Simulated assay, not measured.
Amino acid sequence: MSDREDQLVGEFPKIPKQERAQIKRDLLLKSGHELFISKGFEHTTAKEIAAHAGVATGTFYRYFSDKRQLLMSLLENQIEMLMPPEPKWGVSNPESMLASLLELHDERLKKTGMQRLVPELLAKDKEFAEVLQAAKRKIFTRILSGLKRAYDNELTWKDLDLNTVTWSVMILAEHAHEKMKQCGNQTDYREVAKVICRLIFPPEVMKQLHTNETVTKEE
């Protein structure tokens, strides 16, 4: 394997303007996605990606300098999809809303399959690790901002450090889909949402929120 295949190097490629070139590039992206998911990044070569896409290896290098560049193109628009969902605290039933968001996040992860590559990439690619960390910081800031608003509206426990709460929420939300591996049973996102909400809201606040939901439905 050449150095170009062995090292995770390269920048984002330019998208071709001609329709025929775009079609070939899209075929290569689809091929790379399928092979990366089935074989892993390390064991996939540019030659295999090209063959799987039904084009010559030389065609691959017209659009991508290496397999890492192709992978980064795949991830460029999917980084947000790898991030835990941002809860909505101001709704009448935060448990139900959060459970729905967690289920949707799990469905997206299963659909793309890209999260399977993350551990391998984090160990090899410093740039990717930095991009992923920056995306996590953005989500952290948004979740913390929402919690601060809930705190100012006297909805949360008053003796909790919101930074720690935000970190806990992200850990639970990000790894909830792995419960099957750790515990041996399927993840019930309603139960995960319940744990997160009890961490944030006192019982009387949850009761009030549910009461408001009941009143709204009756009206």
Rank of each mutant, 00 (worst) to 15 (best):
L122Y: 03
Y63L: 05
N163L: 02
Q133V: 06
V55T: 02
Q115V: 10
I15M: 08
P87Y: 00
T57Q: 15
S168A: 13
Q182M: 12
W167A: 14
R4K: 14
L27K: 15
E5W: 04
F201P: 02
D188Y: 06
T141D: 15
H43P: 00
E218I: 15
V91G: 08
F36C: 08
L144M: 02
M114G: 03
M83W: 06
A51Q: 13
Q22I: 01
R25D: 00
I23W: 07
F12S: 09
I196E: 12
E5F: 02
E219N: 15
A53K: 09
M83Q: 15
Y151G: 00
V9R: 14
T156F: 01
R116S: 11
S65T: 14
F41S: 06
G10C: 07
I37P: 04
E80R: 10
A50S: 11
E178H: 12
I143M: 01
V9F: 10
V91Q: 06
L98A: 02
A50T: 03
E178R: 13
I79P: 05
K47N: 11
D6A: 11
T216K: 15
A21Y: 07
E76Q: 07
L132E: 07
Y151W: 09
R116Q: 12
T44V: 00
G113R: 06
K88M: 15
A193V: 03
D125M: 05
P203H: 01
R108W: 03
L162N: 03
A53E: 08
F140Q: 09
S100L: 12
K30C: 05
K181Q: 14
N185D: 13
P87A: 01
T211Q: 15
A53W: 08
E76Y: 10
V131M: 08
I37H: 04
L209E: 01
P13K: 10
T214F: 14
I200D: 00
K47Q: 12
K67V: 02
F128P: 01
R68Y: 15
D152W: 07
L172D: 00
E76I: 05
V131S: 07
P202T: 02
R198M: 08
F12N: 06
L144E: 07
P84R: 03
E76A: 11
M170A: 04
K194Q: 13
T211V: 04
D159Y: 01
A53N: 09
S2G: 13
R149N: 11
Q133C: 07
I79Q: 06
V55R: 00
V91K: 06
P87F: 00
L27T: 05
V118H: 06
D26Q: 13
R142Q: 11
R20M: 05
L122A: 03
